[in-house]
Design a protein around this nucleic acid. Structure first.
Lengths: 143, 143
DNA sequence: CCGAATCCAACTCGATACTG
DNA sequence: CAGTATCGAGTTGGATTCGG
């Protein structure tokens, strides 16, 4: 601890990883992933596809929260564009379209797993902290 | 293939992690994290704070892209509410406020590091895939 | 069955101006 | 310095309808 003004409860960065944003205006590269994973549905689609090939309707039913057709279409299209999902159209009647993860997409599942693990592990802390904050700031616009 | 309608073409998941959304309407817990990390600035703030304690203005200068005062305030407030960042106010003149990661916040840096690593590793594939898709779908509304 | 097209509500973000 | 307040543009997501 010692001198100046920085009496912190935790040391600056004990064994923390150094995330190098070397070039200042570079964005560490995280923008690419987060722009995709940050939206409302992509993660759930990836999670479901991690379990195997799925048809459109199967995906729609599997995604928690009830995704609209429109949003599912948009989501899988964007995932396809980014090379995370492969789309196979069987020109049958009725039409049948299958979605599956590409190799890149599969590698992403490990990341999502890490995300889910962290989230589950810290959910109690999250909830508690939020409740405390909300109680201390009754009429705040944050949230 | 065989019977029903659920004939899968690829093996469900070779060595992929199983992300258990056991309860169907549960959201695997990822929503909590992604709602925070998914916004435009939180990750950069966490990255910068991973390097040590920062004051408001220091943060603002450090974040790439040029964050407005308003957005920085909102971002750190939300991070504070979630228990990821601790805020210390020194009632001096001029005012001095220091931000630092909490223990939970520090544990998050490993996740962000994983995110950044994955992103950097797959950025070429991303870029290529997008370019190819865009070329194949010249006038699409996706993007 | 899979999706495109349209319309609309809600939210996010940025710019600007002002305060203790 | 570290915010708060206000306004407006842009984006996202949902509901609905229609088509191949």
């Amino acid at each position: 601890m010692s001198v100046g003004h920085t009496a912190v409860t935790t040391p600056p960065a004990p064994g923390d990883p150094v995330i190098s944003c070397d070039t200042p205006q570079d964005e560490c590269g995280v923008r690419d992933v987060l722009d995709r994973l940050g939206d409302k549905w992509s993660v759930y689609v990836v999670v479901e596809l991690a379990a195997g090939v799925r048809r459109f309707k199967e995906l729609q039913r599997a995604v928690p929260g009830g995704i609209s057709q429109r949003m599912l279409t948009l989501t899988v299209r964007r995932l396809e564009r980014d090379g995370l999902v492969h789309r196979t159209v069987h020109p049958t009647i009725p039409p049948q379209v299958e979605y599956e993860l590409t190799e890149t997409g599969h590698s992403l599942t490990h990341l999502v797993k890490a995300l889910a693990d962290w989230s589950i592990a810290h959910r109690p802390a999250f909830t508690a902290s939020r409740a405390a904050w909300d109680a201390a700031h009754p009429d705040s616009e944050i949230r």
